[in-house]
Amino acid sequence: MVQAWYMDQSEEDQKTPHRAQPEQRVPAQQLRELGVCSWKLNPDNYETDPELAKIRKERSYSWMDIITIHKDTLPNYEEKLKIFYEEHLHLDDEIRYILDGSGYFDVRDKEDKWIRISMEKGDMITLPAGIYHRFTLDENDYVKAMRLFVGKPIWTPYNRPADKHEAREKYVQFLAQTA
């Protein structure tokens, strides 16, 4: 399963772990209370993996593509990394499955503190619609990920502040119910 921890306040290189001192790990249950779900799958057979097929069917993830984020494969690499790292939300769930490489998703907790989620080969995650988050590569500078959607993909990020969007309002209500 994914590893997660509270971040320090440093503004230095976004690709470093940024672990708060003393270290404060975040258990999977706390992530679930934020609406973040994760799985550990076998990416070496993702095309025929029955566990992935089951998750996709249960959650209606009907659309999929694969993206490789590396300076040699992604046009406008530096610009894209800056955009991915801007705090934003989406109106739909964000689903990512790491087929190779590694990176970080950062999400806000109920007190608006950053939690860093380390993603590596085999990790799959869903971030609920309306959660503030961002993504960056780690120091390996490479990730190959499957992107999944319910229906056709909608790529629009809404940078913070975006509290008036219905998805954000629903997410805040969800947080209040889990308190």
Rank of each mutant, 00 (worst) to 15 (best):
Met119Asn: 02
Met7Lys: 14
Asp138Tyr: 02
Ile115Lys: 00
Met64Glu: 05
Arg108Met: 05
Asp92Ala: 03
Gln3Ser: 15
Lys80Tyr: 02
His90Ile: 00
Met119Pro: 04
Leu91Phe: 01
Gln30Pro: 08
Tyr142Leu: 15
Gln173Ser: 13
Asn159Ser: 08
Ser102Glu: 08
Ala4Trp: 08
Gly122Phe: 03
Ile69Leu: 13
Glu87Gln: 12
Ala4Met: 10
Asp92Asn: 14
Asn76His: 14
Glu23Ala: 13
Glu78Tyr: 07
Arg108Asn: 10
Glu166Arg: 08
Pro75Met: 06
Thr178Ser: 09
Lys82Ile: 06
Met124Val: 00
Glu139Ile: 00
Leu31Glu: 09
Lys144Asn: 06
Glu111Pro: 08
Thr73Arg: 14
Tyr6Cys: 01
Asp123Ala: 10
Met64Asp: 01
Lys113His: 15
Ala129Asn: 06
Asn45Gly: 11
Glu87Pro: 05
Lys144Gly: 01
Thr178Phe: 02
Glu51Asp: 15
Glu120Gly: 13
Glu58Gly: 04
Asn42Lys: 10
Ile69Pro: 02
Tyr97Pro: 11
Leu137Thr: 08
Asp72His: 08
Ser62Asp: 11
Phe149Leu: 02
Gln24Glu: 12
Ser60Cys: 13
Gln14Arg: 13
Cys37Met: 08
Glu120His: 09
Ile125Arg: 01
Gly122His: 11
Glu139Val: 00
Ala176Tyr: 06
Glu51Trp: 06
Lys121Glu: 14
Ile117Glu: 02
Gln9Asn: 14
Ser10Thr: 07
Ile125Ala: 07
Tyr158Gln: 10
Ala129Ile: 10
Asp13Gly: 05
Leu89Cys: 13
Asp49Cys: 15
Pro22His: 09
Phe135Ala: 05
Glu169Asp: 02
Tyr158Asn: 13
Arg108Lys: 15
Gly130Ala: 00
Pro161His: 03
Ala129Phe: 09
Phe174Lys: 01
Arg25Gln: 14
Asp138Glu: 02
